[in-house]
Nucleic acid binder design. Structure first.
Lengths: 342, 342
DNA sequence: TGCTCATGTGCAATCGTTTGCACTGCTGGA
DNA sequence: TCCAGCAGTGCAAACGATTGCACATGAGCA
């Protein structure tokens, strides 16, 4: 592999000059530029990114920590979409994306810390927010640059972008109420995740606002998996007073609920209404097509990346926090109830 | 950030000694090791990965090129699964994964080449194989280390791991035949991808082997999207002699076909049988549950990574090629036909 | 004619490691 | 008693770029 030294020799200039030609900047005569460029081409020279990083003290890489938690499990399209969003920003800035993803949460934490501490990455985007996690505190203490997709409960000075999950829960529940359903149950995700707590809060808010009573037995946890959701839904339907609508905290769980309902011989949406969250491809593909609250996943990625870029370039220090809204998407699994109850 | 120099000073030894303690190797007295370790801990020292890479001439990173082609679109679980497989191997070897993924194929190629040439990554795993692509030739010429998930048509000395797509096509078609279907159409993916050609070949083989006649109008291209598949299937059903079974080259397209069939008032599997490929979560979730040929995606990732590791460590030079089999998974969309025709 | 400055280029230090080689003591066998 | 050999450590040269500073040249101006 040729180095700048070789190029310099060939072009009859010094390495500094070559360097300056490459970085484009500075005052180099057109003639010299030309000769250096030619030499580079002739030798097939490509600058060594590692050496460059060492000298310039920036890795040119940012880490993306993807928790393989059920929360953003791969049954749904969260992960690819968020990457797409991030990538669209990073590529403009010439950054590469280092993926940190493993089955083991401990390994994940260790790798995240290692990547940042070893300066292998200049910053990180983290896509999980458990209720209790000391990782963020560590990162803040070490003044590492990172952005969270999600949010933190305590008042750590952390930059994050999140969707408004309280509102998401509220919108979904509210929609069911307006569609005429009266006994609305919620199948929630693992309460270890903040997103779960938020959506539950929204659910409760809509319930009480409508003057309905919150029933403990109508709120069940299915850990973001379809199987658990199906089972949970069966139990709900077996109650003395079974619910006439189900709000599932994501589309995957909603699909489980749908299955349980249909198996039990009930009709959707006539007997039981269902709504999910995410609007992943599955939702429109199911029969009946699933009503849902769409989350702007791509945008979450975009904003997380933008904020991180700012953090890195401006040396910005005040944490920025951002909340994006969801959108109600009404499909077959809930829309027509009004007709029946009317 | 403390450097090895600081640690060395504190421990009263030379940098070389510190380095040797870190790398674990070599002959360092227990006492010295202890002192150095203590110094590192006291200073909160973490070795700089970039400097390390420069000196050791290995990036410790491998690139994963994810083509956002429809072939491995995110509607299915190909991408996450393959990453999981790769990750499980890489983490054992202490490698990080650099993700190269963009909407634009040209940018993708450029980034791939740049990452390898700049030695930002030690090698790459590439997940696309278009029929005509000069990328591989370039990479081979430059002696870059890479493994392809998929395969090449020409006889380039390229290491790859692929599933046996001819056989996959054969198995799916054969199954339909054995289930009693007689007019079997195929909805294929974009013929620009080798995988498509292979599955078509398998389809034809099974057809002719069963003494059936290959009909040109029974082979249609739907570019791996559900919408196109639905449309294509409608047209098939409108033929004078409509098919009584559909082999779709992936589950996503199969779901489109299912929708078209049901819309037209026909029953599955009684009137029309359907089979897909992949066995992604969607397949078991659909109603009727979709018969399919399962592809060992996780294993593809594992083997690609293993082969790349060998390429990097042994300086191995003979290309290794590997083909993994698929598995027939019979569900509701095809199984019972035998009962009716009997 | 002499001085100032802008322009273009080179020198050499620096980034933080790794690693081949040389050196110092000591141990133990002949 | 001498010397080979080894364990333990340090020196200093890489690795391949970036960058502050110094320097040479020639133009512009008084």
């Amino acid at each position: 592999m040729p180095t700048m030294k070789d190029v310099a020799r060939r072009a009859g200039v010094s390495v500094s000059t070559v360097s300056r030609v490459i970085s484009g900047s500075d005052r180099i005569s057109a003639a010299t530029k030309e000769r250096v460029r030619a030499a580079m081409k002739e030798l097939g020279f490509h600058p060594n990114a590692i050496a460059r990083s060492l000298a310039s003290k920036t890795a040119g890489t940012i880490g993306l920590v993807v928790s393989r938690s059920p929360e953003n499990a791969f049954a749904n399209s969260f992960f690819p979409e968020v990457i797409r969003g991030i990538g669209s920003v990073l590529s403009k800035h010439g950054y590469y994306l280092l993926l940190i993803m493993t089955d083991d949460p401990e390994v994940e934490r260790a790798q995240t810390l290692a990547a940042l501490r070893s300066r292998r990455v200049d910053g990180a985007i983290i896509t999980s927010s458990r209720v209790s996690d000391t990782l963020f505190r560590h990162l803040v203490d070490e003044k590492q640059k990172f952005v969270l997709i999600g949010r933190v409960l305590d008042d750590l000075p952390v930059s994050y972008v999140d969707n408004d999950n309280v509102k998401v829960g509220y919108m979904a529940t509210r929609h069911l109420i307006e569609a005429g359903y009266r006994r609305i149950a919620m199948i929630s995700g693992d309460p270890q995740y903040i997103v779960s707590l938020d959506r539950i809060e929204g659910y409760k808010k809509a319930i009480s606002e409508a003057g309905m009573e919150f029933r403990k037995e109508y709120l069940v946890n299915a850990g973001f998996t379809r199987e658990a959701a199906e089972e949970a839904c069966q139990k709900l339907l077996a109650l003395d007073q079974p619910p006439d609508a189900i709000f599932a905290a994501d589309d995957t769980m909603a699909s489980g609920a749908v299955r349980a309902i249909l198996k039990s011989g009930l009709r959707i949406p006539e007997d039981v209404g269902v709504i999910g969250v995410n609007d992943d491809p599955l939702a429109s593909m199911m029969r009946p097509a699933l009503s849902t609250v769409r989350i702007p996943v791509f945008e979450l990625g975009v904003w997380a990346a933008r904020i991180l870029m700012d953090l890195l370039s401006d040396g910005e220090t005040v944490p920025r926090q951002m909340v994006l809204p969801g959108t109600l998407v009404v499909r077959e699994s809930s829309s027509t109830r009004g007709l029946f109850s009317a």
